[in-house]
Design a protein around this nucleic acid. Structure first.
Lengths: 109, 109
DNA sequence: GCTATTAATCGTAAAATTGCAATAATACTA
DNA sequence: TAGTATTATTGCAATTTTACGATTAATAGC
């Protein structure tokens, strides 16, 4: 079929999956790292640094934005993107909770 | 084109992206949660619990396995899957490092 | 108003993902 | 050895993702 059955999963599972999905591409990881590093990133910079076309980067930025991970405001002729603090904190919390729920102490297979 | 240009990104970026990708589906999140909870999970159980066909679940398990997140050993007639402690620890470290690299203190857009 | 610069959007193509029925493979059991 | 139970694999269709060229929208500077 090719479409995910979101309705059979919990809200928590869908949320985590969608956040992971937004970061499940090296270009988007690179963009996030770049934004974090400079703390004020303009799209045009990325086009020169990553080896991807302007349209492609704009698309990745859109995905990060729609996932809520970043936010952008118009700054003169260009756009300034930065991390969305609330969503980033939510991500840290949910992820820490999820990863931390596994205790490696008990012996298994 | 439709294929990711992995060669233009760093090893770190590709690793993080592939780990995120492995978890970027609610069914795989659900499977991981289920494995963590029972600490000894058999595929057949999941088929009853999640509303997905046996073939589909087997495929998701394969993806989690190839990403290194889980490992399975044959246990009589069925297979016992559990978390791979080393990879899980690696995931926690790299992810913590990545998420922690952002400090929300500085004002931005 | 006109032009240059920047970013978003559209259209398209190739490839990957998701899901399932059907089938194959594997290992117990009688 | 035949039969049963469990998991993996195969083949297929629908959808999504990735990427880019071309075009469009918006804004600053002249």
């Amino acid at each position: 079929m090719g479409l995910t059955k979101t309705e059979i999963f919990t809200e928590e599972q869908n949320l985590l999956a969608s956040l992971f999905k937004a970061m499940a591409h090296p270009a988007r990881i690179a963009i996030l790292q770049r934004i974090i590093l400079s703390n004020t990133c303009i799209c045009g910079d990325l086009v020169g640094e990553l080896g991807l076309a302007q349209a492609t980067i704009s698309q990745h930025l859109k995905e990060l934005k729609s996932a809520g991970l970043i936010q952008g405001t118009i700054e003169g002729v260009s756009v300034c993107y930065c991390i969305n603090p609330e969503v980033w904190k939510l991500l840290e919390n949910r992820l820490g909770e999820f990863l931390g729920s596994y205790k490696s102490t008990t012996e298994c297979c």
